[in-house]
Simulated scan of single mutants.
Amino acid sequence: MGLNFKKWLLEKLGGEEQRVTSAEITGEEFFDLASDLYVREIAFWSCVNTVANAVSKCEFKTFMGKKEVREGEYYTWNMEPNRNQNASAFIHKWISKLYQDNEALVLEQNGQLLVADSFTRKAYALYDDTFTGVAVEDFTFKKTFTGSEVLYFKLSEKDMRRVTNGLYMAYQKLIDYSVRSYQKSRGSRGILDVSAMAQGSEKYEENFNKLMNEHFKNFFNSENAVLPLFEGYRYTDIGSKTYSNEGTRDIRAMIDDVSDFTAKAFGIPPALLNGTVQGTSEATDHFLTFCIDPLCRTLQEEINRKRYGYAGFKNGNYVQIDTKAIKHVDLLSVSTAIDKLIASGAFCINDIRKLTGETIIDEAWANQHFMTKNYATVADLLESLQEGGTL
């Protein structure tokens, strides 16, 4: 296999803790490392896709003069950030780069928002950071971007992917041991006795190599087979009685552990990844509260400070990432709550319809707020009592 691909694989696996160098790796080691990579990558990208799917369901609300509007900025964030991507594809790339590299860069060119595939950042304490070598797909910008010209997102001070990789390097030893134990317990084992007379034969080396490399291989790999033996050879099958009974379920449980501690690094409840139905509602609430809401706040803060600034903020111009649409709403189960929200005057009918994913009603009464007569202010109640009324 090509040296470059091996080197890439080692970089993906190792970080600061590579076990071997690209010059030392053998074919067998390569496939062992590839297996390690698959286990780790499926855990990592399952978490990334879960987060990206959640953010892509959010609505990027735009406000002008503290009033919600749906114009060009709204269309850009919710429909078409650029001519080659819709909003969902754009967000998936954006979030993927953020978690993969612990940072992401979004720039605007000719009215289009683009997620950079690679860039080099020069950080300064008192001046704008600079970004060079910014590449998007097949195009690399020759100019140097300043921090005020781009949207730069950093996930955390510590790259959690490197942390989980380090943890996985230690945990992988347990998985490897379990796999070897399972293979050993299910493999064919035996004892080959070779007499002194057979060892003294002129064709001993030829016969021995043929037996080991051809006859035994065919014998162990065939469902039904006969093992031909030379004179002076005796084979005794000892089966697998002396070996462990490690099961595939035990190995599966260890691989699930990899997903669990990767999910914890993301702030995702493991139940959302392993398919556990019980407690899903509570897990979803935890996911939204401690993973998605903080992430969306980080994203909208960078968007607002770069695209609107203090002047826009002062005038009530900003973007708000609304996460309420992430969680599926069962209308029948929340019908009582909907009634209370409308009856208390907290929300109008169109507010509720947007919360439940329904189209709004283009009528004035659908935007009015209603309140039942059961509600009253404390002042009104005191006035009623003074006039001889009752509670």
Rank of each mutant, 00 (worst) to 15 (best):
L192F: 11
K184C: 09
I268Q: 01
D129Q: 01
D129P: 02
L126Y: 14
W77C: 02
Q386E: 02
L229E: 01
F44M: 04
E29L: 09
Q85C: 07
E29P: 09
N350W: 15
Y171W: 03
D362Q: 00
Q278H: 10
R297C: 04
A271E: 10
W365V: 10
S188Y: 06
S88K: 12
Q199V: 15
N86L: 07
A23N: 06
C47P: 09
E246D: 08
E68N: 03
K142F: 14
D36T: 09
A364F: 07
F90W: 11
N4F: 12
L391I: 10
M371G: 13
A123K: 15
L381A: 01
G312R: 03
A366C: 08
I268H: 03
L155I: 00
S281Y: 04
F131S: 00
A346T: 05
A89Y: 13
F119C: 01
N218Y: 03
K306E: 08
F139L: 06
S259M: 07
T132D: 11
N102E: 07
F153D: 08
Y168I: 07
R353T: 04
V136T: 04
D250T: 10
D362S: 02
E108R: 04
G267K: 05
L33N: 04
N315T: 15
D159S: 02
L3V: 13
I342N: 03
E282N: 12
W365H: 05
L272I: 01
T356L: 05
F220K: 00
A135K: 13
K203M: 15
G200M: 04
I292P: 02
G65A: 11
A376M: 06
S201N: 10
F370G: 00
K61R: 09
P269A: 00
W45I: 05
K264G: 15
F220V: 04
T336G: 13
Q18D: 05
D380I: 11
F131D: 04
L9F: 06
N315W: 01
T146C: 09
R353W: 09
D193L: 03
I303T: 07
I342R: 14
A343L: 06
R353C: 08
L272S: 06
T262M: 09
A311E: 14
L155H: 09
F370N: 02
T132L: 12
D101I: 03
K217M: 06
A170R: 11
F145Q: 00
M160A: 15
Y204R: 11
D351H: 02
M371F: 06
D260H: 10
F153T: 04
L331C: 08
L113E: 08
Q172W: 15
D293S: 09
V334Q: 13
L295P: 05
E71S: 09
I361N: 03
E383Q: 07
K327D: 14
N315V: 08
M254G: 10
F230C: 13
